[in-house]
Amino acid sequence: MMRPDPRRADRLRLLAGLALAGTLILPLVPLALWSVAQGWRFPHLLPQAWSGRAWAHALDPASGVLESLALTTLIALATTFIAALVGVPAGRALGLYRFRGKGIVTLLLLAPAVLPAIAVVFGLHGVFLRLGLTGTVAGVILAHLVPVLPYMTLVMAAVFARLDPELEAQARTLGATPFQTFRCVTLPAILPGLMTAGLFAFLVSWSQYLLTLAIGGGKVQTLPLLMFSFSSAGRNDITGAIALIYILPGLLVLILTARQVTGRGAALTQGLRP
């Protein structure tokens, strides 16, 4: 039997890997080119003229793109913060204890994570309208919690499930207050998991389109809404520039978390969303 040449196998893998990676960034290429194009008609392979106009528009304070970037960031941060505040205790209950009704609770948490936004958004709009929450940033943050909170809770449940409860008990017997125990024992143990869960929760909120459109009623202009209004008006150059601005924070988040996800990340990937 002939053994395959290991170098040849390596080359094949690299080739397959490159094909995969190439495919993955391919759709970003025309977006990037459009953002510096002035006119790019068929059959030109490259833009007919290069221009910084789209970027000048996107970075001009009067165009509202930067304002929208700040607003999108603020909403995602607030959503993540509330989700962590509420989701960490719930995750602790689910991860550390066995109790009756746990199945139902898990299902109730899982359903909003699995169901598409379109299934609840009409009803949610009706409820929020009566509460005066439509068209407000607060309303949009609450709506974003529907997909974000289950995610945070389930990931934290997985993190707590791997936590050794004995450590906390020992700290308590050694005289630590509950707060000291949390700060010095529990928090350091769950922090890496919490960070990654938080960063992905941020991204889930960051990517929302439909919930923001319906609950914000256009008044809460996050980046995807702004980009969409240029895209649907055929301004491919400005669309390209906003698209690149829009994916930037994701890139930053990724650089911050790359190690956690590829490393011992089994529990974290449980909470990944498509």
């Binding site: 389109y209 994916i247 890139l251 990724l254």
Partner: peptide, 9 residues
């Protein structure tokens, strides 16, 4: 990286 790109983009 692809994972972080919003669907609409």
């Amino acid at each position: 990286l692809n994972l972080t790109i919003p669907h609409v983009v």
